[in-house]
Structure formats: C-alpha cells, structure tokens
C-alpha cells in the first residue's frame, strides 16, 4: 500500500522529493527585513517596526551546529510513537544559519548520533519522514551532516 505524503505542518518547507531543492520556508518583513521561522504571516515581531508585508522566503540550506542532544526516552504525545515498539533514540540538532542570523531546531536524519556531530560542524536541511500511519507518511525536515553526504 502506498501512503500519501503529507507535510506534518503546512507551509514550513517545500514539498517535492528532491533533496537538493528542499528548503525550510520562513517569511521576511518587507519594511525591516526581519526573518521569521516558524513563519509569521500576520505581524512583524520587530518592536521597532511598524509592520510591513510578510513575504515567503526560503531559508539557507546549510548552517552550522549550534548544539545537539539525543532523546533517550520516548517523548509524550502529541509526538507520534507506538508505545508497543522499542524506542529508537533520535538526535536533535540546533543549527545556526549565517545569513538569517538565527538558530533552527530539527531532528537529525535517522542513524546520525551525537557521536557524528560537533558544535560548528556544517549540516544541511533535507526532507524526511516524521512518522507513518495507515495511509499517510508525515513529512518533515531533517538536518544531515554535510560530511556524511559525500
């Protein structure tokens, strides 16, 4: 059976299969240039800005590791995880994007552990699957070390 691919949250990243084109999507204020991720569509949060048009903008594909950790215990709902299966620890990576001057959190691609990461190392954003149920594969973004890709 083929599951339908659906983004776990709408409008936060590009859709389609290509790793190379995949990007996180934020918004940028037309008045003050502030960037927002998760996207801010109704108001600019810069206190010195009277508010401009918020336009969608793709974020940098690559960034550097700000920090990282691994969740060794199963998180509570609404994280989708079958309590009857053995818990597979996953790695979380906070990534500093130079152009946007911000840090974005995400899960690492499956298989990447804390041993594969270091603060300052280069990573890139790629599409991934967060969870699957009967007929849906919920898509998300993952961070992948650039070295592992070679």
């Amino acid at each position: 059976m083929t599951r339908v691919r659906r983004p776990v949250v709408a409008g936060w990243f590009t859709e389609g299969d290509g790793d190379r084109e995949f990007r996180l999507l934020g918004t940028r204020c037309g008045a003050c240039t502030a960037v927002f991720f998760p996207r801010e569509d109704s108001f600019c949060r810069n206190p010195g800005c009277t508010g401009g048009e918020l336009a969608e903008v793709p974020l940098s594909k690559r960034g550097r590791v700000w920090s990282y950790t691994a969740g060794r215990y199963r998180p509570p709902a609404p994280y989708a995880s079958d309590p009857d299966t053995e818990w597979e620890p996953y790695t979380l990576v906070a990534v500093e994007l130079e152009a946007e001057r911000m840090v974005v959190l995400g899960q690492a691609v499956p298989g990447v552990t804390v041993e594969d990461l270091s603060v300052g190392a280069e990573v890139e954003v790629v599409p991934g699957i967060l969870s699957e149920d009967a007929d849906t594969a919920w898509t998300t973004w993952h961070w992948r070390p650039v070295e592992v890709d070679r």
Binding site: C29, A34, V35, F37, R45, R101, M102, L105
Partner: peptide
Amino acid sequence: IATDSAVA
C-alpha cells in the same frame, strides 16, 4: 523551534 533572527 527557532530563535529570533538578528538580521534586522
């Protein structure tokens, strides 16, 4: 999930 941006 992310910090503010320091661009502006």
